[in-house]
Nucleic acid binder design. Structure first.
Lengths: 216, 216
DNA sequence: CTCGGTATACTTGTCTAACAATCTGGAGCT
DNA sequence: AGCTCCAGATTGTTAGACAAGTATACCGAG
């Protein structure tokens, strides 16, 4: 049995631990994740391990074909591009709506403050607050379904970051400057300009990551 | 065992049949869907029924709390609004991109032709081609993740249609006219105007459905 | 008559055990 | 060398069992 408090159940606990291992990079891609291995690793029965694996397959964290072992999905350049373009679509819509009401998302500003604390440091440390900034913009819409769609994208980004291990990142200064510019434009009601900054912001990250992912 | 060809497996077949029953309205909301009932209904073992139910819970078709029976989710006015606003966000982004390249989605025009065949008929018959029209616009982006996000929304719309049973629908003429206007504007490269038509188009449907769902 | 606590029935959660179906990789043969 | 076939490994499915939790019905007290 897995350690810790059992709020939900064995299957969810195992799924959570497995997800953390997958997006954290502890499980390298293409390594088979068999039901037996998961069962032994977390000391649960095989059906429980199976259920946890199937849950993650449903979420897209793992991939599997019939009668084959599951494996951590390896993101290629096309997948990275698709993730970032979908991010841009959702986030652009959010920005336009927020700018239309001149509504500045406070949670995004707080995430920016955390990024500012790492000025001059490594960009790896700001992956989390950066994603929190972008998620805050989307969450400001108060739309359960829009946020859910965006969340699955951020998890893929996190997994991608673990895969490239800090290569191809953009300087903290640039990220922070563009974030603040976007917030200013939203507060000023200029949605189109804010969307343009976002397109530049995400487009550059897309290019960098796609290039790095393609060259191991 | 469920009838038909087993391409994938028992669990997927049962899940598919259950999903069809849920979004088709055969399973009314709030009616408990127990594992034992599903197992008996499709002549499978309880673990298989359990897996199928959990798959649908993961997709959001069914909802369940611990140790309680699963049930078909009942959509309320807030849920309908959230679905339609999220649809608008994704579809607006798609329209802007397509209009930017003056790229007219052919599959959407084909769906419109099918709608035209029902002119003067009941709006219930065009639910499918109407959703196909909108999906075609999104699918024209060629983005796996964007399409997947939109697909889950269309399934919720379908379920909602089964729930309201044809009340509060909009005339076929109006729908078709707005569809064709959107395609024209996309081909002309006027994305903003096309988005405005879409907002009107979906906004009206949102209001109608939300009102109908709220009054049983 | 109403309220509250208990007990029971129902449902899900988890595990053990087993066998069938299928895929992979290598041994052996041509 | 290339192909075939077999054995091992892994998943797919089922059966049965017991534990754990929730909701509801029932009964007694006020």
């Amino acid at each position: 049995m897995v350690e810790g408090i059992r709020v939900t159940g064995v299957v969810d606990a195992v799924a959570e631990a497995l997800r953390a291992a997958a997006i954290g990079g502890e499980l390298e891609p293409d390594r088979p994740v068999t039901e037996a291995w998961v069962a032994a690793r977390f000391a649960v029965a095989r059906p429980s391990a199976k259920a946890a694996i199937e849950k993650l397959v449903g979420e897209g964290v793992l991939e599997r074909t019939a009668h084959r072992s599951a494996r951590v999905r390896r993101l290629d350049a096309d997948a990275v591009r698709d993730v970032y373009r979908t991010r841009r679509r959702i986030e652009s819509a959010a920005i336009r709506e927020l700018a239309g009401e001149r509504r500045r998302p406070d949670a995004a500003a707080e995430a920016d403050a955390e990024i500012a604390a790492h000025l001059g440091g490594s960009s790896v440390d700001i992956v989390d607050p950066d994603l929190r900034f972008h998620s805050a913009i989307v969450d400001a819409l108060g739309s359960e379904r829009t946020s859910r769609a965006y969340r699955s994208l951020t998890e893929e980004v996190r997994q991608c970051m673990a895969q490239v291990q800090g290569r191809g990142l953009i300087s903290v200064d640039t990220i922070l400057a563009e974030h603040e510019r976007m917030l200013e434009l939203i507060a000023a009601g200029d949605g189109e300009a804010a969307v343009a900054v976002l397109a530049e912001h995400l487009g550059r990250a897309e290019e960098r990551l796609a290039a790095v992912v393609a060259t191991p």
